[in-house]
Design a protein around this nucleic acid. Structure first.
Lengths: 221, 221
DNA sequence: TGCGTTCGTTAGAAGTTCTAACTCCCCGGC
DNA sequence: GCCGGGGAGTTAGAACTTCTAACGAACGCA
């Protein structure tokens, strides 16, 4: 291997301290949001003084990038585990996504919330994001094994002509459409719920989530 | 009237300067996001020096609250105009919402994006938000005039028992369900599109939006 | 014309990110 | 076993931010 990481004791210490910083950062993000993340405050919490952390992170942006990477990784692993457990069952995946989002709303928002205008995610983080998409797409493709004879929706026809983004995935246009609908509908319910737009309305958001899920396992309208 | 506002020339000047500050703030938000909003930078742009703006806004939070209020007002007016033009046509309302969001994505995110953890919207802004919801709910209620005989979805049954939030609106549980589905699905597509999660995928997001809209005018699954 | 309100200013406190320079100690080679 | 290099942590400081306080000056109303 090229860079195993934990070679010398110094590198081990370095990795450990980086991990500790990230732990404090998550705690801070969960309580005050990503925009309120302060390297200074983290340093003070750890008993260090200000600029010490700049030995470990080039700046606030690199720390956030690292957090984004970890969050994507966590979600990808969670969904992969759910796919293994339930045999790529779509409802199981959706509920795993919901559980993951509810466990730490700010972490979900860090990935799928309001983007920071200047910030561009590095290549490797988008690769993990693609992995997440592929897990969901697999489940959609497995749901309707052979709908090649059905004509598909008009939007599916459009997708058939623009499927570069799926690479060599053997999903049918109908499966692609189902995946996009799955993604956007679940995100719609989840993000509004996490943002608190349903509070005070009295009804239970999880029932809306389940209702949307029921519609997604049935044929699309 | 109690406070007409533009009484004395001083008050007129005051209102005008407040408006000018907000204009610069929107410009700044559109390019760098809401979290990067700087009163100092706005003052410099206007040829004033730092603390001068504190005569007009108690602080950053009050400015943001004012912007939120204006954004809600703008969206409410846009939807109301669309409802008048198209006779409360649901598709027309949805397209008006989409157009409004695309015109200034950061403005949409300010209302429906990642919430600021510490911030709580004042009473009057939530009142305008309710007005927006009511416009959409009206269109949903008008779409299916008398479906009282149909049993409705399981989630609609749940809504029938928890409809305090609609006040005295005469919408059926099915209409409530349709409204929530409309809102969450449109927000799902819109927010992911505005956040750039579809860029690089090649397909046209507006077709996905229209496809979801087609499903919403038909009976729910 | 004069007085008071309000405006805009500068000064300054407390916070942030981040750079620069300095000390100190630990680890590895000899 | 020692001794030098490099990494760790420190303080100082620049350039920002929000926001308060105190000051002069200008404007408007009576």
């Amino acid at each position: 291997m090229a860079k195993t990481g934990a070679d010398t004791p110094r590198e081990r210490y370095r990795a450990q301290l980086r991990e500790e910083v990230k732990q404090h950062a998550w705690q801070q993000i969960a309580t005050a949001g990503a925009s309120a993340l302060s390297l200074n405050a983290i340093a003070k919490q750890m008993g260090l003084s200000g600029p010490a952390l700049y030995r470990y992170f080039a700046g606030r942006d690199e720390l956030i990038t690292e957090l984004v990477r970890d969050a994507y990784r966590s979600l990808a692993d969670t969904l992969a585990a759910a796919a293994d457990d339930d045999g790529a069952d779509l409802a199981g995946l959706a509920r795993a996504l919901r559980g993951w989002a509810l466990a730490d709303p700010q972490r979900y928002f860090l990935l799928y919330g309001t983007p920071v205008p200047g910030y561009h995610a590095p290549e490797d983080t988008t690769a993990i994001a693609d992995e997440i998409m592929r897990t969901l797409l697999d489940a959609c493709a497995a749901l309707a094994p052979a709908p090649a004879d059905t004509p598909g929706t008009p939007f599916a026809d459009h997708l058939a002509a623009h499927r570069d983004w799926v690479g060599d995935h053997p999903a049918t246009p109908a499966a692609l459409h189902r995946f996009l609908v799955l993604w956007t509908r679940l995100h719609g319910v989840l993000s509004l719920e996490l943002a608190g737009h349903f509070t005070g309305m009295g009804f239970r958001p999880e029932l809306l989530f389940e209702a949307e899920l029921d519609g997604l396992t049935a044929p699309l309208a």
